[in-house]
Simulated assay, not measured.
Amino acid sequence: MIQYFFGDDTITARGRIAALAEKEHAQIRFVDKEDVGEMSLQSLLDASHNSLFGKTIVVLRDVATFPEHIRSQLLELAEQGTLSHEMIAWDRTAPDARLTFTKKIKKAVHCEAFMQPKDPQGITTWAATYAAREYADAAFSPGVLAEIVRLVGQDVNAVASEVAKCSVLASVTADDIARIVPQRAEQDTSAFPLLEAIVTHRSKDALRILGNIIDGGASERFVLSMLAYQFRLFLAVRIGHEKNADASVIHRATGFHPIAIQKAMPVVSRMQLAAITDALVRIGATEKTINTSSMDPRSMLTMLVLALAK
């Protein structure tokens, strides 16, 4: 069976995938376009299913970016309805409705849309559902959730992060929110919100945060060095992750601070090694251009952030 999930609310979509896997007593295997190469879709599916480990749900992540031959084979299998494996084609953005692939896949298979709410009330309702599902032992009142949304903005990733931080409290109060949750304006002066926006492909947010950082007094070269440091950290953590190394092992091998490593781990788990190395190449090239040409540094940095968040 093939299903098609799409939309920028990746948190809810990921939860839905996890729920399906739990229902089917199955493992999840995420497949990115970098994993495909010249393989056929059927070969990819066969390689992803190993009877020793039981049932597997294969998730083609950002399927709209996959090679044409894979998308064509996917449509063929969907239209035939003969696939014996469980598979989810997942686009982590709103797909282009004009594309032939989008039109055909929506007609051929079961589809589910996961879109971020566009208004504060919608985000607050989303937060209530998320908190009840993920942190049932913590009590979040509607007023508390509305205050979190007011402070961090209409961004489900940021809201989810703050809900997770507050969930250690049995009952969350307005005073707790004031103490624990920073305002978005304060957050935007640090590197992590920019990196989070880049990693989750939120280019508009990334540009807004970049603008706030520079308007706050940071130079373009400072931001560039900050990005270079963070992606070097991501590279070290990703390599360590693939070797099943914990934070202390990565710290001893690389010298990065254990807290920085631990903070990077959930971010890096969503990134491919190739994407990290590509980002470092782009950052290095931008740094060289800024240092050796008369081009406007802010424009160069803006183009870099757009490319990284694409």
Results as ranks from 00 to 15, higher is better:
residue 212 N to L: 00
residue 262 Q to G: 06
residue 107 K to H: 02
residue 23 K to H: 11
residue 304 L to H: 06
residue 215 D to N: 04
residue 8 D to I: 05
residue 129 T to K: 02
residue 168 V to R: 11
residue 68 E to L: 14
residue 246 D to S: 05
residue 291 N to S: 07
residue 275 A to F: 11
residue 82 T to V: 05
residue 7 G to N: 10
residue 1 M to I: 07
residue 101 F to E: 05
residue 135 Y to T: 00
residue 60 L to R: 06
residue 160 A to Y: 03
residue 254 T to H: 12
residue 225 S to V: 04
residue 269 S to G: 12
residue 197 A to Y: 01
residue 222 F to A: 14
residue 76 E to K: 13
residue 147 E to Q: 15
residue 117 P to L: 02
residue 247 A to P: 08
residue 290 I to R: 09
residue 52 L to P: 10
residue 296 D to A: 14
residue 76 E to I: 09
residue 221 R to C: 10
residue 17 I to T: 00
residue 58 V to Y: 03
residue 67 P to Q: 05
residue 56 T to E: 01
residue 189 T to D: 01
residue 132 A to R: 07
residue 147 E to N: 11
residue 274 A to Y: 06
residue 100 T to V: 13
residue 44 L to Y: 10
residue 284 G to W: 02
residue 75 L to N: 11
residue 279 A to K: 10
residue 218 A to D: 09
residue 56 T to M: 04
residue 224 L to E: 10
residue 211 G to E: 00
residue 141 S to F: 15
residue 164 A to E: 01
residue 215 D to T: 02
residue 299 S to M: 13
residue 157 N to M: 08
residue 114 F to W: 01
residue 304 L to T: 07
residue 179 R to C: 15
residue 11 I to P: 03
residue 32 D to L: 13
residue 77 L to Q: 14
residue 55 K to T: 04
residue 59 V to L: 01
residue 121 Q to S: 11
residue 293 S to Y: 02
residue 217 G to R: 05
residue 9 D to L: 03
residue 29 R to S: 06
residue 73 Q to K: 06
residue 140 F to D: 01
residue 223 V to M: 10
residue 88 I to C: 07
residue 238 R to E: 08
residue 87 M to Q: 07
residue 97 A to F: 14
residue 216 G to W: 03
residue 277 T to N: 08
residue 206 A to E: 04
residue 284 G to K: 04
residue 68 E to M: 13
residue 80 Q to I: 01
residue 19 A to L: 13
residue 122 G to D: 02
residue 211 G to K: 01
residue 230 Q to G: 00
residue 149 V to Q: 08
residue 310 K to F: 09
residue 229 Y to L: 09
residue 184 R to S: 13
residue 114 F to S: 01
residue 272 Q to Y: 06
residue 285 A to F: 02
residue 174 A to Y: 08
residue 172 V to T: 09
residue 197 A to D: 01
residue 237 V to H: 15
residue 66 F to T: 01
residue 75 L to K: 11
residue 282 R to M: 11
residue 210 L to W: 02
residue 253 A to T: 07
